[in-house]
Amino acid sequence: MNIFRLVGDMSHLLAIIILLMKMWKSRSVAGISGKSQILFAIVFTTRYLDLFTSFVSIYNTSMKVFFIGTSYVTVYFIYQHFKPTYDSNHDTFRVEFLIVPVGGLAFLVNHEFSLLEILWTFSIYLESVAILPQLFMVSKTGEAESITSHYLFALGSYRALYLLNWIYRYYFEGFFDLIAVVAGCVQTILYCDFFYLYITKVLKGKKISLPA
């Protein structure tokens, strides 16, 4: 465990907590894409099936359980508990355009042709694009609340920090996972436009609002 990975994980954890707090305190899921959150629930479920087959550490296991658990709570909040506040009219990204190609790719390009490994690969590929419905929603409504921006920033930073972690692990541990690295780069690139807006607007006290 190096500092980049630890801070990356903490950033991921923080993103999830920010999102849950935003929903709980405001009693609203306005501005949040339910589709992205469903994709994240699928990502965690398919990736962490190894909870049943291998043990890495108590840290690793508890984080996995937390990520899976909170992803379902989030989906429950959006589609049940705070459903009247869910803005489905603006959450219109067609997720099948992500799931089908990503599923096909995981089947074709993986480390090992086994069920668990294909599902792990699927989750890595899917995670890299899972934020697209959310980014699409922000661009469609042309705005994002500050709290939603903080959530997106923390969530995007996590994979960017993992890129540094992989550089570190390559040099100091000889560890290299091409699938994770390529997907991590794609994931981070997707956030670049948002990172720019976040730094130039949100950090200066303005909320993100895009020209119509």
Binding site: D9, H12, D50, S54, N60, K64, H111, E112, N165
Partner: peptide, 10 residues
């Protein structure tokens, strides 16, 4: 090789 890949990251 046991054919099992261990993923130690989250």
């Amino acid at each position: 090789d046991t054919g099992k890949t261990l993923h130690d990251e989250l």
